[in-house]
Design a protein around this nucleic acid. Structure first.
Lengths: 216, 216
DNA sequence: TTTTTATCGATAAAAAAATATCGATTTCTC
DNA sequence: GAGAAATCGATATTTTTTTATCGATAAAAA
């Protein structure tokens, strides 16, 4: 019987840890030696070395007995999995305080993301530049998505207008959405949506804290 | 043989979904009927009804055949699990653009969190009020954590100072940390830390997008 | 040169999470 | 009032993820 080799795509929990390994590796890149072992990474991050090694398997990088992995290779390979060695253009909609914070977040440059324009409906913002990124009226979105072939949309509008903005972007060919609006939005199944609501991680924090306090 | 009933604490994936159910329920709370079924929630969110029902089990709420769950009861019970029916005071450190966005985020009031003071080292910010929350110099932290019995710290400082700020808060009795600094920080094992780095969810987004584009 | 030691990586086992099955229940429809 | 339809919730199965085991390897130490 022929057994088809199942293509193992990188699991989400692994992807999350990989981004964290990357920041640890990034720190060590300057100061330390050329190699890092799964044991070291695990110790720094309070994880299991076996888990780290399993995660790193997905990079395709081979380690060296007694030494570990070449830091530079690992750094490159993790960025490759995340597609952070390439840069994708993105539009940000909703230039309120969160939107402005994201527009000003330098770090995304090294995370494969370049926000090339912002959108809002507030007349005071339109035409302004925030962190050197120009803000346009939302009605410019349809034309510009197509003309500039932008694939990523960042949703920072209030809950009440999130679905409308999402629909507008999807209708005009956006492929992926990063949703900061504190609401569930509906998208067709072929559109990638990643929810980044802060309340999700806050919920975990407050739950754990309550458990901890209860334990006394 | 006696079999100890294992205490099943709520799994993290379930907690994350519960916060999302909450926002869906919140929307329906005004407009619709008194009941909602797992099927309805699942349809709205693109999940499996069985999974929704399993998650809702952790609330302890019983549903009614053919009707579903009482919306009000569900709403309350989910908030109870997350401990969002109580309010915890918090300090925010680092009043840069992300910090300011969080200080201004009204919604946290309904998520059991009240930020009662901000801290920074920038002389221009100290003494100011941002969204009606006063900013103090970081050197006031030790005294104030103890005096006000604050349990949650929100870290919005740059990577380079994150570990120092975390140490300062831990040394002075903070119990839980919500870390927005794009770096791994070390804490004692009894301290709750929840990482909210945006890059984690961005990594998932860019990875998926790359896979999708590759598939053509 | 030989022995010791730390690490990798293949394979296996265990645990956790997601999905499926199905009888019991209760409203809704006729 | 009888039958149909939809949902819950207990139990079981499958899948995914985490953790464990152990031989092979190569640097470091003796």
């Amino acid at each position: 019987m022929i057994k088809l080799e199942k293509i193992k795509s990188t699991p989400i929990p692994t992807l999350k840890r990989l981004t964290r390994y990357l920041s640890v590796i990034h720190q060590l890149k300057e100061s330390k030696t050329d190699y890092i072992s799964s044991t070291e990474i695990a110790n720094i991050m309070g994880l299991d070395p076996i888990q780290v090694r399993k995660d790193l398997e997905f990079t395709g990088i081979s380690g060296f007995p007694r030494l570990g992995f070449k830091i530079d290779d690992l750094h490159f390979a993790i960025k490759e999995i995340l597609n952070w060695n390439n840069t994708e253009d993105a539009f940000l909609v909703g230039a309120g305080s969160l939107g402005q914070a994201i527009l000003g977040y330098d770090r995304f440059k090294s995370c494969g993301l370049k926000i090339i324009a912002g959108f809002d409906i507030n007349p005071e913002l339109i035409g302004k530049k925030i962190s050197n990124i120009e803000i346009y009226h939302i009605n410019k979105i349809p034309n510009l998505i197509k003309r500039l072939n932008v694939k990523i949309g960042i949703i920072c509008v209030p809950a009440s207008s999130a679905q409308d903005v999402v629909d507008l972007m999807v209708d005009n060919g956006i492929l992926a959405l990063w949703n900061f609006a504190p609401i569930h939005v509906n998208v067709p199944s072929d559109i990638i949506i990643e929810n980044a609501q802060l309340s999700q991680s806050l919920g975990i924090l407050t739950h754990k804290l309550a458990e901890k306090i209860k334990a006394y």
